[in-house]
Structures are given as structure tokens and as C-alpha cells.
Design a protein around this nucleic acid. Structure first.
Lengths: 179, 179
DNA sequence: CAGCATCCATTACGATACTG
DNA sequence: CAGTATCGTAATGGATGCTG
């Protein structure tokens, strides 16, 4: 069996209308929403896989050959690059052009659709860039609390996990100003 | 061991400068790029997991209690909702407020950071919505070609996969107009 | 150079059962 | 209600070796 992508058994809901504006108390009739959500989910799985965004981002800078891409990206295995490109090709996001030269030469490029994807994808990437530090800080804080609340017995071996909860009375409405 | 999230061994590159504009032949010195890319990758893994986007989207409509979220989302298992919310809390994207009522009541809400994430996330979701049909069409086309080029021997059992390649001479520069 | 096939480790996720 | 614990399965993804 091929370990290829394209899966997603079937997710349903996907949040319907406008997140705020629009009708305020509109808590979704939960029926027609389900429909196109099922089509949205697979796309997100695609975006979310380990390499798609990378590849799309790089191809956004112009067409590229297989190994060039491989080198630029850095940590990707040949297998995953192949798989990712296949999926993208299948989805109509990239084109694969083979030049029948003596050493075979294959060039990948974004399609129109692929370029349109580039916009929101870069938006996410930039968000990630800008907020990475905040997130790391939040994680550190969280982990610190978790570790503090679970000294278990002796010291504090690197056995991370668990949570500060159930350590006594839950702190209520922490009033954290969301920094 | 907890099956919790937060993994990502270490990805490196992440496409540096402006995707097009800027310096044209700038093919990345591949060094300082590697730095913040390593911080961006985990964030994307988070976005890409099966439920994060869903949860964030729903919470974007206002604070919600555990089971309310569970019901609204639909296909999520209790376990995954817990895990997802944990991760989001750890990342500082949602707050978890426990009200010590007799039946315990926990409310989840997006933080400022979480709301800022909402914007690019909705952008992706909308892109997915708008282009889902094109993608499906592209897939159908691709799969049709793949199936056509691989009748194997007898008929065409449901052994999907593979590709039309290596079936003869590769079609060169297909000139597909990217529809 | 480009890429498929196979093996193998890790992980994500769902179902189920139990707790405060 | 809101979890946690445990189990089993399937998907993800890396390493390696072979082909055209």
C-alpha cells in the first residue's frame, strides 16, 4: 500500500457564519454547514502536513527543480518531497514539467490556484513568525506550573507532562489579562 | 507516557525573504533563515492537526464550555478535544476558567493571541471553501489519468495509487494552461 | 537527476471504561 | 460535567536500496 496522503475519513462541522459580526446569537442550524465543511477539512489536513507549506512557500519564489527544492528546504527526505509534490500536483496546485534531457530534468511550479493559496499561507507563516516568541513563553510558563504541581517524590526528573490541576482548589477566574 | 502533542523534532528552513519582490536572485544564505523557521514549523504543525482550526474557529464565536464545544464540533472524540484544548492553553491561545459549581463548569475562550490567530486561520478556511471544488476537480482529473495509465493486466481493481509515469515516454511540457 | 519500493519507528487519533 | 487512563489501529514520516 502506498503511504500517500489524501485521507481524512470525514470531519463534519466547520463553523459556519461570521465569527463575530453578523447575527449575534446565531449558533448554527448545523446542517448546511456540515456540507462544505467536509470539503474544507481535507484541505486543511493538506496545509497542515509537515511539508506542504514549506514547499509552496519556496515554489512561490519561482519554479524549481526537484533537488534544488530538496536542498533549499533542507531537512526533507526525498520520499516526503516526492509525496508532497505528488499531492500538490494532484490537487492542481503545482505543475510538473518533465524535460527529456539526458539527465532527466523535472521542474515544479505553482499553478494559478497554487499562487492564490500562497497568500493565506504566507499570512499564517507570518503570524507564526511574529508570535513564535509569545507562544514559546506561554509554553514555558505552562510547563513550569505543571512541573511545580507535580514533584512526585524525589526531585523533578525530565518527565514532563500532566498539569497543575487537581493540586488543591482550582484557581477560579484567574483574571489573567491575556498579557 | 502521555500521548500529548507538542513534538516536532526539528525542521529547518522556512523560506526567508519576500517570495517574489525584493532581491531577485537571492537564494538564501541558508543560515539565519534556519533560525526562526525552526520556531515557525511547530506552530504550523499545531494549525495543521485535525482539530485545532475547528476549535479555534468555534471559540472565535465566543467562549464555550467543554461539552458545548464537543456537541457543536460534532465528530470529535472527548479525548481529542481535551488534548487540543490543552495544547491551545499551553500555547497561550485559549484560557481555561473553572467555576467551582456543583457540577463542575469549565469555560474556554480565546486569548488576545488566539483571536489574532483567528484572522489568518479564517483566511485559509475561506480559501479552502472557495477552491474546494477546483481542487476536487483537479484530483478527479489526476486520478482518472493515473487509472487510465495503469490497467495492469485484467481489469482495474480498486488498487488506487501509482502514477501514469514510466508507462512509456513521459509527456513533455504539457502546456496545461492552469485552467 | 528524479523517483519508486520496502522496512521501520513514531505519532495521532478513536473507542471505551473509570473518577471527582 | 469535565475530565483521566489505557488500549488498539492507522497514518505519518525517515532511512535505505534499486531503477531508468
Amino acid at each position: 500500500m502506498k503511504p500517500g496522503h489524501s485521507n481524512v475519513p470525514a470531519t463534519q462541522a466547520f463553523a459556519g457564519g461570521t465569527p463575530n459580526g453578523g447575527t449575534p446569537a446565531n449558533h448554527v442550524t448545523a446542517n448546511h454547514v456540515t456540507a462544505d465543511c467536509a470539503r474544507v477539512a481535507p484541505v486543511l489536513s493538506r496545509i497542515g502536513d509537515k511539508w506542504t507549506v514549506l514547499v509552496v512557500t519556496f515554489l512561490g519564489r519561482g519554479p524549481m527543480r526537484f533537488n534544488a527544492l530538496r536542498r533549499e528546504i533542507g531537512g526533507i527526505s526525498q520520499r516526503m518531497l516526492t509525496l508532497t509534490l505528488r499531492s500538490l500536483e494532484r490537487d492542481g496546485l503545482v505543475t510538473r514539467t518533465v524535460y527529456p534531457t539526458v539527465p532527466p530534468q523535472v521542474e515544479y511550479a505553482l499553478t494559478e490556484l497554487g499562487r492564490s493559496l500562497l497568500t493565506p499561507v504566507l499570512a499564517i507563516r507570518d503570524w507564526a513568525r511574529q508570535n513564535a516568541l509569545q507562544i514559546e513563553a506561554a509554553q514555558a510558563r505552562f510547563d513550569a506550573l505543571a512541573a511545580a504541581a507535580k514533584p512526585a517524590c524525589g526531585g523533578g526528573p525530565p518527565h514532563v507532562g500532566s498539569r497543575p490541576s487537581a493540586a488543591g482548589v482550582e484557581e477560579v477566574a484567574h483574571l489573567q489579562s491575556e498579557r
